[in-house]
């Protein structure tokens, strides 16, 4: 039992006193947290809280102003390029060469990671095998996000970063993406995800950090955070029903995800 706990809580990302300033503006004000190996870790917060900045610093895309970041034992200051090889990054609203097919785009990323892949197998992992010849611009929102995730998996990364992957998707597409993310986790990959949908964080994340104004103001499992709030005497204004409107919508329109 003890052994199990040690494995569970082995940190794969350690962030200490991370700061980021743009001139006088302090986007990230000395935050610290750890992401454990194999978990789905959520960075929550309203727009402008510093989620994306934090994520992009860990992804080696942005210089930090202060603090230390260690990813799988590699220091971001001196080993950024080694870090790039073991992570997969999905950006908010990233585009690709618009006139290339999905197969050609995967070949491009295979080359960028120096990692030969079976493109069809990769596409079938994200349920896009029949879109092999389609162009990225021809995909629906959900398909685009799943393709983006496929590009993050090419180098068999230890960690993948997903920046608001479900923003703008319909309920079916969101659920479908959650399933994909859970599958990725089941393969042993650590997932760091930002979102401002709390239901998503509750369903998906093992632990969440809540950010506000460049600071982490809470960090725990969703369950514990809820329990803490309830223990403080919080009560919902309205009696919680056994289902919500989304459940109604899904039961009316069907759970299964469809091609838009």
């Amino acid at each position: 039992m003890l052994y199990f706990c040690v494995v569970q809580t082995k940190p794969i990302i350690t962030v200490k006193d991370l700061q980021k300033s743009y001139g006088d503006f302090h986007a990230v004000k000395g935050i610290s947290f750890e992401v454990y190996n194999g978990e789905i870790f959520g960075l929550l917060g309203p727009n402008g809280a510093g989620k994306t900045t934090t994520l992009e610093i860990i992804e080696t895309l942005r210089e930090k102003s202060g603090g230390t970041v260690i990813v799988d034992g590699l220091n971001i200051d001196s080993q950024a390029n080694d870090i790039k090889q073991i992570i997969g990054v999905q950006l908010q609203a990233a585009g690709y060469y618009p006139s290339l097919s999905l197969t050609e785009l995967l070949e491009l990323f295979a080359g960028l990671y120096n990692m030969p892949i079976n493109t069809l197998e990769m596409l079938s992992r994200v349920g896009l095998e029949d879109k092999a010849k389609a162009k990225f611009k021809e995909l629906s929102g959900g398909q685009k996000q799943r393709f983006s995730i496929a590009t993050t998996l090419i180098n068999k990364p230890k960690i993948i970063f997903l920046d608001e992957p479900t923003t703008g998707l319909d309920p079916q597409a969101r659920r479908n993406l959650w399933d994909l993310i859970r599958e990725v986790k089941a393969m042993g990959t650590t997932v760091v995800i930002t979102t401002h949908y709390m239901d998503e964080a509750e369903q998906l994340c093992d632990r969440v950090a809540v950010m506000e104004g460049g600071k982490v103001i809470a960090l725990d499992t969703p369950d514990t955070l809820i329990d803490n709030l309830v223990a403080s005497g919080f009560e919902r204004k309205k009696e919680v029903k056994k289902a919500n409107l989304e459940d109604v919508f899904l039961s009316l329109t069907g759970q299964e995800w469809r091609d838009e």
Binding site: T60, L61, N81, Q85, V89, A93, N155
Partner: peptide, 15 residues
């Protein structure tokens, strides 16, 4: 640059 393709490249090990 506009479509973040180049940023996505930065996240891979290419210099």
């Amino acid at each position: 640059r506009q479509t973040l393709v180049i940023k996505r490249f930065f996240a891979t090990p290419i210099r």
